[in-house]
Structures are given as structure tokens and as C-alpha cells.
Design a binder for these strands. Structure first.
Length: 470
DNA sequence: CTATGGCACGGATT
DNA sequence: AATCCGTGCCATAG
């Protein structure tokens, strides 16, 4: 049998090994955690050793390696990302301490008043004095997403006023910034935002229906079924969905206040826990990237040495069972290592290739294919596919995006297209846009422009109207 | 007649 | 082998 040939690439030795590694590769952190917990529970030969922590930064360390950040020599090259496994005990997105200092917009008001006051000041002018307590009640009952957490009827009863009056006040609040705040459900928030948006620009006609009838399908990206309900094709459904994602936000408090045209980071997706967390080591322009690969458990998995020992004196009737447990455990540990190894190398390569995209944004995305990467890393194409699909990455700016975005061939062109339309003084037809794109080095067919436009939720030229921002 | 959406085909990707 | 994506052609709306 062939022994590993390449430098530090762990090679699968058996088909079972291969199969299991493949399966593991395809799993998200959260899925992997369940898988590992299952194995741990069913196989006594496996054990979980708790992670050590770095004495300096208190970060949990994978295995016996020194802390990849603190024990790093001073030789820092921007081209060399620091990639490491990061055992986690929590499953909330988190920011590296250093990068969290960097805030995206500078014109942010230094004295930030809290959301309830911010909204109250806006509605105060048109609010009847006697309705003030109602507004206050509503605004103090918001959850952290800006949604109303108590039923309206409760407020109505509490203040001994008719329900319509409460509704009237709520309507006022919902129309304040951030638009939709105070809505009882994400659905209501979207509807209000849509209504407000429709005053300044045209909107897809079926968007309202989509939100009203297909909310659950919408949030699960079930375009085909959504299309069926609305009596349109799944492509159209997708377009509408895209429009909603791009222009509306189901959780009003989660965006920054002020801007009307939110580029919300696809809010319907953000609850995913990222598998990769990318930040920058320092705020310098040439700082290396730090890539943490989320490990699902706070510890390191290994074969229990005591179990190995015990096997020697195993009672005859248990011997076979134990032996098989041990083998399974060894295989499992090896597969996990293999998975980690592949992901580390993949992440490293991606961080090198897509550095500009990670730091500067969509316009700098390199067009790369999974096939190319698989050659560079010396693995099968399907390996890359598995490793990428369904995974989420948190970028230094805090946005969580699907890992597949690193391989999106059209994203670059789509952002160029958006820029063209935003900067255009006249209303451009699709063919006009196609020409302009070609001049920028993106030769695309007119028909393709239409599709990209639709993907971005931008309406056709004759329905488009231009408004100056604010 | 022009601009755009639907459908389907072929090649690339997974 | 199945799926996705860009594109051409045609129908339709304005």
C-alpha cells in the first residue's frame, strides 16, 4: 500500500478514510460539533482534551502548538496570512480585539444616543402630547433587533386607550429612522420599509405579495416554491428576493442609522455562525490577515491513551468490540486532522489570492475557480467543493458571507455595474451598460447585463428613476 | 422600433 | 452525472 508521498499532505490510506474525510469536509462547524459529540458519546476510545490557553492573550490554543499570534516573530509579511484553528466554546460571531477598533464610517455621531431616544426625538414633533406615554411604552419595549416584543393590545389595555390610537402611534414610529423600527415582526418591518421605499423609487410589483405570503419561503431561499405561490418563475422569485435582501432589513436596529439605501449584509443569512473568521492583525495597510478556522469544540480530540492501555487486558467477550472502537476512533481522529489540514491550506491560499477582496470589497474579487485551487493544493476538485459549500466566512468588516463568494465569477462585474448605474446621469439601457462594461474590460452580452441587473434587484431602465442621495 | 423578459442550449463547474 | 451560468433567439410590451 502506498505511503504518503507529498510533503505534509496527509494522504488517505483507505477508502473508508477517504469517504469519512469527504463527509467531514462538507460539514459546517455547527454540524461538525454535533457529529463529534455523537462520536464522543458512542465511542469510549475517543476523548476530548480541553484546550490550553495562551498565557498572554488568553486565547484557546489548538493542540500543543504555541499561540500563533503572540509567539509570532516580528517578521510580518502582508502576503503571509496567519492561519490557525481556533477552538471555540461559544457560537456567536465575534471580532478580534484589534480589528474591532476600526469603525467603518467616520461621520458617525460621537455621542450615540440609544435607539428609543433617537426615535422618540424624531416623532416628538408630530406626536400629540397625550400620545407620548404610548410612544415611550412602545420604544422601551423594543428588543435588540428593533422589533416590538409586546403585543399592541397589552399597551392598549395598560393605558386604557383604544387600540387604533396605539396603532396610529406605532405607525408613526415605524416610519421614523431606522424605517420599520417597532414592528411586531420582521415581516411587518419589511412591509413598512417597502412602503416608504415606494415613495422615492419604483419597486417590484410582487414584492409585497412575496413578503405577505411567502415570508418563510423567502427567508429560506426557497425560490421555486415562492414562485409557485406567486404564480411566477423561480428566477423572478429570486429577483424579487434579491431586491428585498438588498434594500430592506427585517431587523431595523441591526443596521447603522441614517442611510436610507442600506447595503444590508444579506440580513436573512447573518444568523449563520462563520466557519472562518478573518481579521487583520493590526490596522496598518500592510497588516497580515489573520484567519481563524472555527473548531466546534473547546478542546482537542484524541484517542484515549487509557483505553488503548486497557485493550490489552480486555475481557475476551469485549475484545473485538473494543478493538473496533479503537480503530474507529483512530480513523475518526485522523479524518478530523485531515479535514483541518485541508481547510487550513485552503484558507491560507484563499487569504493570499483574495486579500484585496477581503480588505477592499467586492470590486477586487479575483476570478478564480475551484478547479484551479484544487490543482494548486493537489487535491481533487470535489474536495474543494465540499470544503466550500455551505460554509460562511466573517470578513474583517464584520460581514458574514458565504464562502462560495470567493469563487463568484460575476460579483466583480456586478459591482462595476452597480457603480455605473449609480453614477449615471442619464437612464441607461442594458445595451448602454453592456458597452460601458466592455470599456472597463468586462465584455458581457446585453442579455447578461439584464440578468446581473436583476440579481442586484435593480429595475429596468424605464422604471428607474434617479434621486440624489438625501 | 427599442428595450427587456422567457426559454433553451452548450459549455463550464461542482 | 447533475447543476449552474452566460448567451442567443424570439415574443411581447411600451
Amino acid at each position: 500500500m502506498l505511503i504518503q508521498s507529498q510533503s505534509h499532505t496527509l494522504r488517505p490510506l483507505t477508502t473508508a478514510h477517504l469517504a469519512q474525510t469527504m463527509t467531514l469536509l462538507g460539514l459546517t462547524v455547527i454540524e461538525l460539533r454535533q457529529k463529534i459529540e455523537g462520536e464522543l458519546a458512542s465511542n469510549p476510545a475517543l476523548e476530548l482534551v480541553e484546550s490550553r490557553r495562551c498565557p498572554t492573550c488568553h486565547r484557546p490554543l489548538p493542540g500543543n502548538s504555541p499561540c500563533p499570534l503572540c509567539s509570532r516573530p516580528q517578521r510580518l509579511s502582508p502576503d503571509q496570512p496567519i492561519v490557525f484553528l481556533s477552538p471555540r466554546e461559544d457560537f456567536h460571531p465575534y471580532h478580534h480585539d484589534i480589528s474591532s477598533e476600526e469603525l467603518p464610517d467616520d461621520n458617525f455621531a460621537p455621542e450615540i444616543e440609544d435607539l428609543p431616544h433617537y426615535v422618540l426625538h424624531q416623532v416628538a414633533v408630530e406626536l400629540q402630547p397625550e400620545d407620548r406615554p404610548l410612544a415611550a411604552h412602545i420604544l422601551t419595549s423594543l428588543d435588540e433587533d428593533g422589533l416590538l416584543s409586546v403585543p399592541l393590545s397589552e399597551i392598549s389595555i395598560y393605558h386604557h386607550v383604544p387600540l387604533q390610537r396605539v396603532e396610529k402611534v406605532l405607525r408613526m414610529i415605524q416610519h421614523a429612522e431606522p424605517v420599520g423600527v417597532g414592528s411586531p415582526t420582521p415581516q411587518d418591518a419589511l412591509l413598512v420599509q417597502l412602503e416608504v421605499l415606494s415613495e422615492s423609487r419604483s419597486i417590484p410589483p410582487l414584492a409585497i405579495q412575496a413578503i405577505k405570503q411567502g415570508m418563510s419561503l423567502l427567508s429560506r431561499h426557497r425560490y421555486e416554491e415562492l414562485g409557485n405561490i406567486l404564480g411566477i418563475s423561480s428566477l423572478q422569485a429570486k429577483e424579487i428576493s434579491q431586491f428585498i435582501i438588498n434594500n430592506l432589513n427585517p431587523f431595523p436596529a441591526r443596521t447603522h442609522w441614517g442611510e436610507v439605501h442600506q447595503k444590508a449584509s444579506s440580513p436573512l443569512d447573518t444568523y449563520h455562525f462563520p466557519d472562518l473568521i478573518i481579521s487583520r492583525l493590526t490596522n496598518d495597510e500592510d497588516s497580515p490577515l489573520v484567519v481563524e478556522i472555527a473548531m466546534p469544540l473547546f478542546g482537542v480530540l484524541r484517542v484515549n491513551p487509557l483505553f488503548r492501555e486497557a485493550l490489552r487486558q480486555a475481557p475476551a467477550d469485549k475484545s473485538d468490540q473494543w478493538r473496533s472502537d479503537l480503530e474507529k476512533a483512530e480513523l475518526f481522529v485522523k479524518c478530523i486532522q485531515q479535514r483541518n489540514n485541508t481547510i487550513v491550506r485552503l484558507a491560507h491560499r484563499l487569504a493570499v489570492l483574495q486579500r484585496d477582496f477581503i480588505l477592499e470589497g467586492d470590486a477586487y474579487l479575483m476570478p478564480i475557480t475551484r478547479a484551479r485551487l484544487s490543482k494548486e493544493l493537489g487535491v481533487h476538485e470535489s474536495t474543494i467543493s465540499r470544503a466550500v459549500s455551505d460554509k460562511a466566512v466573517q470578513l474583517p468588516n464584520g460581514k458574514i458571507v458565504p464562502m462560495a463568494m470567493f469563487f463568484d465569477r460575476s460579483l466583480r462585474i456586478r459591482t462595476a455595474l452597480k457603480q455605473i448605474i449609480n453614477q449615471a446621469t442619464t437612464t441607461l439601457s442594458d445595451s448602454d451598460i453592456a458597452e460601458l462594461l466592455a470599456k472597463q474590460g468586462y465584455p458581457v452580452a446585453r442579455r447578461t447585463v439584464a440578468k446581473y441587473r436583476a440579481m442586484e434587484g435593480i429595475l429596468p431602465a424605464h422604471l428607474r428613476q434617479h434621486f440624489l442621495p438625501n
